Simulated scan of single mutants.
Amino acid sequence: MAEEVKLFGIWESAFSCRVQIALKLKGINYEYIEEDLHNKSDLLLKYNPVHKKVPVLLHNGKPILESLVIIEYIDETWKDTPILPQDPRQRAMARFWAKFIDEKCFPALSRVCWNKEEEAREEAREHMKTLENELKDKKFFGGDNIGLVDIVANVIGFWLGVVEEAVGVEVLTEKEFPVLCKWIDAYVNCSVIKENLPPRDKLVSFFRAHFSK
């Protein structure tokens, strides 16, 4: 029996993009369903009645919710091309850094870029330094290959630069964060990443319009 895989997402979302990257890394065929969060579909409300948001992965009619949970589900369901390390401690550390990005980096960067809170700038810089120290001389957070932390860090690897350009702020510079900038260059030029990112110009225009409201 052929497996049915559907992804409900929105094109401008870094969180939807994470799941798309994970599916592509695994070579999984899936149907993408673009949602309108201002006019949510009955299916989205049916499959995610609690949060009523994307992404939602539908696997053989059963929904999986939240991007980090979805990525781990994908990794556990389709064994080829592992996203998380096989070693238990390394898996735990990958989860730790993924949560660090979502719970520490993303909120601080959001406050700097979206609300232009200067007091959050130092917090964001400290978090970026922490990521620099974790990367050190590795090509990717996952080593030689894209892994969970790299996928989750798309908010830094692509979306941050877009938002910086859209709102006219500068947080991540090559002078201050050379290791992260080197990672970003390798990341956005990795074929599976490059092929699944939204058009940069379109995203910049979207955020400019969003922040001008």
Rank of each mutant, 00 (worst) to 15 (best):
107 P>Y: 05
107 P>I: 02
108 A>P: 08
108 A>V: 05
108 A>D: 02
109 L>S: 13
110 S>G: 13
111 R>K: 14
111 R>I: 03
111 R>C: 04
112 V>R: 02
112 V>M: 03
114 W>E: 15
115 N>W: 11
116 K>Y: 03
116 K>R: 12
116 K>P: 09
116 K>I: 06
117 E>Y: 04
117 E>C: 11
117 E>T: 08
117 E>L: 08
118 E>W: 07
119 E>I: 13
119 E>C: 09
120 A>N: 13
120 A>M: 15
120 A>W: 09
121 R>I: 08
121 R>F: 08
121 R>T: 11
121 R>L: 15
122 E>N: 11
122 E>D: 15
122 E>G: 08
123 E>L: 08
123 E>K: 03
123 E>H: 09
124 A>P: 02
124 A>M: 02
125 R>E: 07
125 R>K: 15
125 R>A: 12
125 R>T: 09
125 R>C: 10
126 E>K: 12
126 E>G: 14
126 E>P: 04
126 E>Q: 10
126 E>V: 05
126 E>N: 13
127 H>L: 13
127 H>E: 05
127 H>G: 06
128 M>Y: 11
128 M>V: 05
129 K>E: 11
129 K>S: 12
129 K>R: 14
130 T>K: 07
130 T>P: 10
131 L>V: 03
131 L>Y: 01
131 L>M: 11
132 E>S: 07
132 E>M: 01
132 E>L: 02
133 N>D: 15
133 N>K: 10
133 N>T: 12
133 N>S: 13
133 N>V: 11
134 E>W: 01
134 E>S: 05
135 L>W: 01
135 L>M: 04
135 L>P: 05
135 L>K: 01
135 L>C: 07
136 K>E: 06
136 K>V: 14
136 K>M: 12
138 K>V: 08
138 K>G: 08
139 K>T: 12
139 K>C: 03
140 F>Q: 06
140 F>S: 04
140 F>L: 03
142 G>N: 08
142 G>T: 03
142 G>Y: 02
144 D>S: 15
144 D>A: 10
145 N>K: 13
145 N>I: 09
145 N>E: 15
145 N>F: 10
146 I>V: 10
146 I>Y: 04
147 G>V: 00
147 G>D: 01
148 L>T: 02
148 L>A: 07
150 D>S: 02
150 D>E: 03
150 D>N: 05
151 I>L: 00
151 I>P: 00
151 I>T: 01
151 I>G: 00
152 V>R: 00
